[in-house]
Amino acid sequence: MIWTVFAITVGVVLLILFEWPKMKQNQKKEKAAFVTLTAMGWLLAILLVFFPDMPGPTQMIEKLFKPLGKLIE
C-alpha cells in the first residue's frame, strides 16, 4: 500500500516537472488551476488507495435517479 502511494506521488511529481517549466511567468490563473487540479487528483488517488470502497459519483447519481430507473424494469 505504501508503495502505491509512493508510485502515485512519483507520477504526480513527474507530471509537475513536465508541465511547470512550460508555463509562462504571467500565467497566474493557469498556474493556480494547474496546482488545484493536480492536488485534487493526488488527494483523490491517495484516498482511493486507503478506502477503495469510498462511495463515488456513480452512487450519488444512482441515488438521485433510482426512482426513475425502476420505471423501465
Binding site: E19, Q27, A33, F34
Partner: peptide
C-alpha cells in the same frame, strides 16, 4: 497545461 492533470483525474 491542463491536459495532464485532467488526464490524471
Amino acid at each position: 497545461s491542463f491536459v495532464l492533470p485532467i488526464g490524471f483525474l
